[in-house]
């Protein structure tokens, strides 16, 4: 899941217009990174595209830090893999 961390940091940095080094796992999306609602959707769409998962709309308001996005993405990726192997 190391890949997920790197990819999420890269997506958030891209959308926020920051360098990847500035996107720490405990950075708060709104307070530290100026992620507004439009940028939050941009991140969700980019995550869906990159990992082939589907982010539920009701999950978006619960994401407050970069770490939250990583945790959610890891869960979604795991669910997807489970589906593939027919668990």
């Amino acid at each position: 899941m190391k890949d997920v961390v790197r990819e999420i940091v890269s997506i958030v940095a891209d959308v926020a217009g920051l360098d990847e080094e500035e996107v720490t796992l405990d950075a708060r999306l709104v307070d530290d990174l100026d992620i507004d609602s439009v940028k939050a959707i941009e991140i969700a769409v980019a995550v869906e595209k990159r990992f082939g998962v589907r982010v539920k709309d009701e999950d978006l308001p619960n994401l407050t830090t970069v770490g939250d996005i990583i945790n959610l993405t890891e869960t979604l990726v795991r669910e997807l893999e489970d589906e593939k192997v027919g668990v």
Partner: peptide
């Protein structure tokens, strides 16, 4: 077509930024 990552504000090379109605969501 909404929020197309390819046309967001930060461009594909360093120092290039996109803005205006041809970005993805405005």
């Amino acid at each position: 077509q909404l929020f197309t990552p390819e046309v967001r504000q930060r461009g594909p090379v360093d120092g290039l930024y996109l803005t205006g109605h041809w970005t993805a969501q405005t």
